[in-house]
Design a protein around this nucleic acid. Structure first.
Lengths: 342, 342
DNA sequence: CAAATTGATGTAACCGGTTACACATACAGT
DNA sequence: ACTGTATGTGTAACCGGTTACATCAATTTG
């Protein structure tokens, strides 16, 4: 009592499978009488075409594979949303997999996608690019997002994290901050590394001494960092700004500081990176670098579609983050009173 | 110069396709010499098995289809995260589609999944269940989430939205509020309807008069509702609580009220529904009903896996939302000063 | 030493669609 | 009448894997 196949329909309607196929795909060269009979039988049998078989035969799936870094929080959600909105507008389905930092699993996943998707979008800043490219079938259309080791001339979208971090440091300096601490992302992550590099460069340019706390992009790291800084806040060398490598850590830090009664931005400024939707909703609203996460996802789909259609695309398309100044880097004040509550 | 196939490998290694297949799938009955030769040739040719063909042959895809409502923001992301975490722990891939409210598209999507997934998880509160079930192939394992018209004895997870809304009204009443306005979800949405029903029932039980503003689950609806209420806040009949049908609308309303200098919860209490991660991060933190979004997604995967393995499951599993009291329903005060800034 | 058993390998059918090509019929043109 | 063309339909090969079964060589057993 399994599913009906096209041959069942053909037998029941007393025609050949070719005719059934033609009817189902709306080809014109079928006699109306046959068409109706086939449709009636298909409906009666509850026939639903087997998409997998169809894909194999057509060598076309109308699906794209998406490989994203570990799926917590808003960063993932925004990327997925951007990809999804563009993909479903084009009638494409998404085969989703998150890259568990574990390279072997990631590569395995990529292989599993062969023959099930028409192309892939890969964002895997944690992964060793060498390994990745070695196992990426050369004929599989792919658009990469922030893959620093992209040597094979693959289509790519690359956020300029170095320039972004520099811009943020410049902004903090312009508001009078000097003791700017950077809370970094995880060590193996190329974006985190680039943001560190930008931070270092800008600090050096301003003649300031860098100080980096290790983080991992999760809210808890921000909480921990804030906790570590609390004891120093009354000292002579008190940091006057915390620049987190992403928004979630910045938010974690803010929550902790608020709980300790430390005024932000009065006593210490806070800045993030990414501009997740949440950043403008919290209070005080977070100053951050907008990378246009959803837009990147959507753009990747557009380029991938062109690639699948047979186009050539070896470009590394740069995306420059934009500084979004909100409340957390406002003026320094002495009182504990939170600022900007208009 | 397309992809190498298993026959290419077989020819090159001078063995049969059966042997290649055996080597690649780790069967034991292959002579070591042959095994090595096949592996060498496969590597040299950059052979990657065609997963689609494999799926067809095995009648097994190790993928599950997921159909979610067209929701932006955190609700979608949380559901996806819950499903993904459980799915990838089991080595399953996700074929994602969002249900565009458009029933025809939704059904089309569902058909497209036949033969590409081993089962489906469907959350489509906007969809007419009749149509949905008519086109859902009966032999396709499926777990539904909040599908009120589930008559076919399908496995389902159902949040008790009525009880949840009642509990929230009870809570608001217990804090002394009487003029409680409900900001509802979209009309065609069954969850929104259930929350309205719960609100109505509880209001009646307390002898209070209900008042419902139409919304659509988006932040902007909350902003608009707050705007509409602003003019009434000084009047004699000023509402003292706004109970939004989801968190995003509650947040939208809060943002607007804050901008107008209205103290929350001093002048008016705000409550949401869902407990998205954001709810505890904003300030003042949002009182809401926790439905455990991610947990529902994960649970759906567990049940679907059992179903795919051949189990029977006709249960409608109830999930009772939990009241999470935070700051937005704290004590009423007269001053404009925001409360709870410890 | 023949017979029986074991193990490795190849052949070909199958999964469920699509479609090139062959074929049959109808209808036009001269 | 005899081609020539258009149209509808069926046959069978194909997409790229898996695997039941047959085959054959090597080893064990009586």
């Amino acid at each position: 009592m399994a599913h009906a196949t096209i041959r069942d329909v053909a037998r029941e309607a007393d025609v050949s499978v070719a005719s059934v196929s033609r009817v189902l795909n709306g080809h014109s060269n079928v006699r109306p009488a046959v068409r109706e009979r086939v449709q009636a039988v298909a409906a009666a049998l509850g026939y639903v075409p087997h998409a997998g078989a169809r894909n194999l035969s057509l060598a076309r799936t109308n699906a794209i594979g998406v490989m994203l870094p570990d799926l917590h929080g808003e960063f993932f959600s925004e990327t997925a949303r951007g990809i999804d909105s563009e993909a479903s507008a084009r009638g494409l389905q998404l085969l989703l997999s998150n890259a568990h930092t574990n390279p072997a699993r990631a590569i395995e996943t990529l292989r599993t996608m062969r023959g099930r998707v028409d192309g892939v979008i890969i964002m895997a800043p944690d992964l060793d690019p060498e390994q990745l490219f070695e196992h990426l079938p050369p004929s599989l259309p792919a658009v990469l997002i922030n893959c620093p080791g992209n040597v094979g001339g693959r289509a790519e979208l690359r956020v300029d994290n170095v320039a972004g971090a520099e811009a943020m440091v410049d902004h903090l300096v312009s508001t009078g901050r000097r003791r700017i601490v950077h809370l970094s992302g995880p060590e193996g992550n190329s974006e985190a590394q680039a943001r560190i590099a930008g931070y270092r460069a800008a600090m050096a340019r301003h003649g300031l001494v860098p100080r980096i706390l290790p983080g991992d992009f999760f809210e808890e790291a921000g909480t921990a960092a804030a906790e570590a800084l609390l004891s120093e806040l009354d000292g002579p060398e008190a940091p006057d700004a915390l620049f987190a490598a992403n928004d979630m850590m910045a938010i974690g830090a803010m929550m902790r500081l608020r709980r300790a009664g430390v005024a932000v931005p009065g006593r210490i400024a806070i800045a993030g990176f990414d501009d997740v939707p949440l950043a403008r909703l919290i209070s005080p609203a977070l100053t951050t670098m907008r990378v246009g996460i959803a837009g990147i996802g959507a753009r990747a789909v557009v380029r991938l579609t062109a690639l699948i259609a047979g186009g050539l695309d070896h470009a590394v398309e740069p995306r420059t983050p934009e500084l979004i100044v909100r409340e957390t880097t406002g003026p320094t004040i002495n009182t504990e009173q939170p600022a900007g509550r208009e």
